[in-house]
Design a protein around this nucleic acid. Sequence first.
DNA 1: ATCATAACGCTTTTT
DNA 2: GCGTTATGAT
Length: 811
Amino acid sequence: MMPLEQRFVAARKSAIAAEYNHLNPMQKEGVLCTEGPLLLLAGAGSGKTTVLIHRIANLLRFGRGSDSEELTMPINEDAIELLEQYAENPQPENRPLMEYLCAVEPARPWEVLAITFTNKAANELKERLTRMIGEEAARDVWASTFHSACVRILRRDIDKIGLSKDFTIYDTDDAKHLIKDCLKELSLEEKSFPPREMLSVISNAKDAMMSPQEYAKRADSMGDWRKQRISKVYSLYNRKLWDANALDFDDIILHTVRLLQSSPETLAYYQRKFRYVLIDEYQDTNHLQYLLAHLLAGGYENICVVGDDDQSIYRFRGANIENILGFEKDYRRARTIRLEQNYRSTQHILDAANAVIRNNQGRKGKTLWTNNGAGDVVTLKTCFNESDEANFIVGQIMMNYHRGANWKDHAVLYRMNAQSNALEYAFKRNGVPYKIFGGMKFFDRAEVKDMLAYLCVINNPADDLRLRRIINVPARKIGQASVDKAQVIATEEGASLFDVVKKATQYPELKSASVKMESFAAMIAEMQEALDGADLIDYYGLVCEKTGYTAMLQEKDDMESRGRLENVEELASSIHAFLENDPENPTLAGFLDEVALYTDLDDSSDSDNCVVMMTVHSAKGLEFPQVFVCGMEEGVFPGNRAMSEDEEMEEERRLCYVAMTRAKEKLTMTNARQRMLFGRTTPNMPSRFLKEIPDGCMEWLSKPEPRPERHWSDDYSDFGSFSYTGSIDVSYESRKPREKPKLESVRKASPASQELPNLQPGQSVQHSAFGKGMVLSVRPMGGDALIEVAFDGIGTKKLMLKAAIDHLKLI
DNA sequence: ATCATAACGCTTTTT
DNA sequence: GCGTTATGAT
């Protein structure tokens, strides 16, 4: 290349780079490396999404301008000088000319595919993209989850592999029901063939692209009786899916891969279309997703995978960490960029986290650092038991609150949902507002599922599973036995259950139920007709009414039914939200698609000021100023199952690393010497992960030994920084469940036997944390009382009077 | 058909 | 220890 051209190419890259001067050098590199395979190892809090967004924006503005020596026009000194100057000191008025000079085949929005794992991530990507490049361009970028991208592809071309385009999607719950049906039909015991396990075996088989026939063959050749049975389940399960014209979540990916593998035109179409492919959270991909990514990116091989091997925590659901560890082997010309500067946490927190994760073998290796300063040391705290632990955490949080912190600046993380009970109790007693994530989700509620089932049946009458769910809800005198009979007939005739129900009176064995069945079918048919051209919201109202579902709830008229009615109505707002979002397919079928893949439309509540509690898994990707990780004990975190297997232990360690790196300012980790879990109290050693944290970045507070008890007398000697005062804390003396008198003495130790005011419903009160409110109810409980107070602008809180009394004033 | 009692079993979770 | 589920009784 001529020197002039070399100078131009260099100046071009510098000028483009100048557009990203607010990024650090590694981030910039990630944005500018547009061509060929790229592995972006993005540590926790390293600004990964920022890089992703800017990278896409860069592709759309400059194409391969920053990563190619290609010239698009004759060049001269002036052009070079302008770019060199721009790189030195970017002037906005020169930007249009600079863009013109630097762009090399800028990507068009629809040529960019950005895949994420969750809808939340996809939406965040779309939002930030919209803000940066404008709505028009952002709309055409394919930013979606694996599953929605695949559904989009399948809706277009699935008929090429012999399936119908109007397939239904079965979620895990549906799949489980289907498995149960299969087991019943094969007369297999659920005890020896747990549906959960069946589902996971089938999922693994699909991930390995093993058909039921292949699975059966393998089972036969091994002579494994159980596997042979499972192969029957797998086979029947798949047949039922086929009959219902349904795909489960694995099928969505599997069939897309099969489609791309078997239809050269389809493959060529997408490979030509997607000039740039980006995969987020690559460490979480399973084998099928890995294949899919490679197929889609196989044309230009401009594949950029982003992820963090140290945050791979979904092995149990098929994630294969080898995908990210082996990326450089898959693509010999791959470039690797490490983002190790952390913008989230203090150095002490990072030192602790780095020290823990360093003990893993299977990793690429990264060391996070920050400019944020050393900050507070990590606090480790050993508590007596889980309620002591919960009280400690609540106490710390209340202390912070009184110093001006927000409740929502605090997060309590745990390994298992079961651990949340003790915490919840402590928060409730102290009147601290909290929110537990990971409970029942909106779309998991029975009433919501019922209404969706109605819509599904209307949309696809062959959906036996959903039909059976709602055929007698509300009660229509169509009993289980009659439905079973009709199902048998349907199977014999090779028809769908709905077909039989429709002409039920032709089958004498259905007896009196047959009339009810036919009128049910008539109702569904009537609604199918009404669908044509109707407004979806109105239509939903019609379905609620015609099915008698709302009437059923209105009649019951108790607290529960009211809530359920609200949820049924709330589904209308989901439909509304769906339509607002200007979907490409604003029909009932389109809505059902979205709902099937989109389970958290309703998590709109980061607005309320609450302490949040969740599992470490659900905390991934989030951050909080104050983080408490509790249950740091051998057998809990790491969990018992990890003890025997190295791979599992490494996953637990990664999980611990994820937990620690959620903290921005202060990290506190607690362990309890004994914990009641699943109804049994067991003594637990402090987690090995705590031992891995170096002295320099932590302090270890500890309750004094309550009493030289059998299981706790020794074994702490190898904990260098463990200190014992040797004195006995009387208030914690043997709080064993059976020793009633002692328990009473503990109660007394808390601010107790003071005079309780005679509160009446209707009384106005002032609370130091929640402000003004009105007492709704007072329920005496022991020597205490549970009061319910409606606080202005906050909502209703339940408080234990004794605990809340110091914060309450009558007004 | 609907309610009651007993028995089980139990990481983590998204699509 | 608790919530879910299966089975049996009315």
